[in-house]
């Protein structure tokens, strides 16, 4: 029989059959998800089809087994998704037997609520915020569970696990509730909602190692594949005319690439990689020298890009 200390040191290799694994981050996330189900009336899990939200779904399965996940999933669809992600989403939802709500950025554009960006760096990423806030109001969601992690970006590092948003979905970073020990305070007023981040304390490598260990299926674009691409500002872009703006002098070339993060096609750059299995991806991340969000153009707009978007209600 191994001692607890040994298990904490080696959660992946020395798990004794008489005890569950001692992955502290997993136990913490499950605790948080159960608090959401207990403290809120209308929670929803925001599902993008990316690896972080897929990880959240697995954690939610674990938290409530043998019952079904007691809240719906919601996808805010920019219309610029990688098709592989959408296929994956629909398959997963069917397997889980949970409700999927889809709200489209295109509808917000058609209703004149937001205006499509133009130019070289046009993206629908920021427009999502309006669609999300409208959906929260439509369904009266009081808690939105998201897969954001504190290690992703500087402004995220200050985010609480239960993060209160006002009627306008805004984040007041100077007036956040202190979070002490394990205690989560989900008391809110009518009209307010809470953004919940169960994997706040996970790093990118933690997520990938978890996907590897749990053998979780993820969309194929996370693995090396051939793709028509072009180069801009030192980053590799999907050559998807009509979705991603491409100047005439930006030459299309086929490259072997994979994506480290899956967002809107117009703001997610690929990396050159031959990692075509989860094991290879994990070792690539382990040796990686470029941070994950380095391939996200929306953060490079300015030093304070993420913080500004968050104040406006972005996830």
């Amino acid at each position: 029989m191994s001692t607890l200390a040994e298990e904490i040191k080696n959660p992946f290799t020395l798990t004794a059959p008489e005890r569950p694994n001692a992955n502290a981050l997993e136990h913490e996330a499950i605790y948080i998800l159960r608090e959401v189900a207990a403290q809120f009336e209308r929670p929803v899990l925001l599902f993008s089809g990316g690896k972080d939200s897929i990880t959240l779904v697995r954690l939610a399965q674990k938290a409530f087994w043998p019952a079904k996940i007691p809240f719906p999933l919601m996808h805010i669809d920019t219309g610029h998704n990688f098709p592989e992600t959408i296929e994956f989403r629909d398959k997963l939802v069917e397997e889980l037997g949970v409700e999927l709500i889809v709200r489209n950025v295109q509808d917000s554009i058609d209703q004149g609520k937001v205006v499509e960006e133009t130019g070289k760096y046009a993206s629908r990423n920021i427009l999502q915020t309006t669609t999300l806030l409208d959906a929260i109001e439509e369904f009266k969601f009081d808690a939105c569970i998201g897969g954001a992690r504190r290690d992703e970006e500087k402004a995220r590092a200050k985010e609480r696990i239960f993060s209160v948003r006002d009627d306008f979905g805004q984040w007041d970073e100077k007036n956040q509730r202190p979070e002490l020990f394990d205690m989560l305070n989900g008391q809110i007023e009518m009209g307010q909602n809470v953004r919940v981040f169960p994997i706040s304390n996970w790093t990118e490598l933690d997520v990938w190692s978890y996907i590897q260990k749990e053998n979780i299926e993820i969309p194929s674009i996370y693995f090396a594949h051939k793709r028509n691409t072009f180069l801009r500002d030192g980053l590799i872009w999907s050559a998807e005319d009509g979705v991603v703006f491409r100047a005439e002098d930006e030459k299309v070339e086929e490259r072997i690439v994979r994506f480290r993060t899956v967002g809107d096609m117009s703001c997610t750059a690929a990396v050159e990689s031959y990692a075509d299995t989860i094991d290879k991806v994990v070792s690539e991340i382990r040796d990686s020298k470029i941070s994950e969000r380095g391939a996200r153009i929306d953060d490079k707009r300015s030093e304070a890009a993420m913080e500004k978007r968050k104040q406006q209600g972005y996830f």
Binding site: R150, K154, A157, K158, E173, K174, N201, T203, A304
Partner: peptide, 27 residues
């Protein structure tokens, strides 16, 4: 480490921030 705009402007840390790193033995 100083994440928020206000902090960079004033050059001070004003809230709890979380920073992650790991070695071969610990996270």
């Amino acid at each position: 480490t100083d994440g928020l705009v206000a902090e960079r402007e004033q050059g001070i840390t004003i809230d709890v921030a979380h920073i992650y790193f790991s070695t071969a033995t610990k996270s």
